[in-house]
């Protein structure tokens, strides 16, 4: 079976790049947001919990 690769037009490649960047930014924001939520909700006590 031959493997055919879809060839994107310049416009398609541009919109895909835009979507990829937006997804990366969203994921980064989510990571930062959940980090901040954890700190705010648990406070400094997060370091004092027994293992």
């Amino acid at each position: 079976m031959s493997k055919q690769k879809a060839v994107l037009s310049e416009e398609q490649a541009k919109t895909r790049r835009g979507r990829s960047v937006a997804l990366a930014v969203t994921l980064g924001v989510l990571v930062a947001m959940f980090y901040v939520i954890t700190i705010v909700k648990l406070g400094p006590g997060i370091m004092d919990r027994p293992l």
């Binding site: 398609q12 919109t15 895909r16 835009g18 979507r19 960047v21 937006a22």
Partner: peptide
């Protein structure tokens, strides 16, 4: 699909 730009979303 795959044609939508960020502004479309």
């Amino acid at each position: 699909g795959g044609r939508g730009s960020v502004s479309d979303y």
